[in-house]
Design a protein around this nucleic acid. Structure first.
Lengths: 125, 125
DNA sequence: TAAGGTACTCACCTATGAGTAAGGAAGAAG
DNA sequence: CTTCTTCCTTACTCATAGGTGAGTACCTTA
């Protein structure tokens, strides 16, 4: 509200698209929600928690999220290998944003939730 | 906060994915931001406002958004055809959700914005 | 009759993401 | 020396979203 007043429709759309890129990917959200709340899971635990995912996809999505700074990867140099994953602070910070999205979706077909004015002009046939 | 306590990680991820489906599509957000603020534009105006889009893509995205209940289509039965598009109330209600997303994205690489505690466990090498 | 603008449709092509199947490093256990 | 577990990689196929370019229906103007 205080520093950006010169955002055109295009630039705003661009930024949102950039933000959404972090969430794109068939399994990112599933992983995210498994890790919300400060949970720390190892690779095999995630595999068990998400039966439908393949190892390749799991690691691919995890790596992308790690590169994006959403999840943190903790390697324990043991044998057999042990690698744990958890959210970064920034990853945790997604919670309110996703919540806003959920509330928006929940307001579908439920008039008078966001603002009470009825929709006036309908079709000037 | 009051009615849904039984949402598993999977179901929550599912709902967010459902919500994000409404925004998926190369041009949806661009169109959305052109229409935010109660603006009413006709087809040719949208075409001019978004030069990179083709007619097919424009109409495709508009139709999907109309079917989703995000935009309203107003047909004037004139003789050069005139069709106008604007957002529904629900479409307008997307604003705060997208704003939350933007704020989250803006918090990247800026520590101490959401919560001030430093990240403790780093890598148990 | 012909040209032209507006909103829209259709047939086709391609780049990308998702998926499957298989294999590999690196020791510990036997 | 073989086998086991765990995490991860590589090679390949496939479905789909996105994109191009052309065409259509309608009526006006000249």
């Amino acid at each position: 509200m205080s520093k950006e007043e010169a955002l055109t429709p295009s630039s705003a759309a661009d930024r949102v698209e950039q933000a959404l890129k972090f969430l794109e990917g068939r399994w990112k959200l599933v992983i995210l929600f498994r890790l919300f709340g400060g949970k720390v899971l190892r690779f095999s635990e995630l595999e068990k928690a998400i039966p439908a995912i393949s190892q390749k996809m799991l690691i691919q999505q995890l790596r992308q999220m790690e590169a994006d700074g959403i999840v943190r990867r903790i390697v324990h140099h043991q044998v057999p290998p042990k690698v744990e994953y958890c959210l970064t602070d920034w990853g945790q910070a997604l919670c309110p944003a996703l919540d806003a999205l959920l509330q928006w979706a929940a307001a579908r077909e439920r008039p008078g939730e966001t603002d009470a004015r009825a929709q006036s002009a309908r079709s000037a046939s």
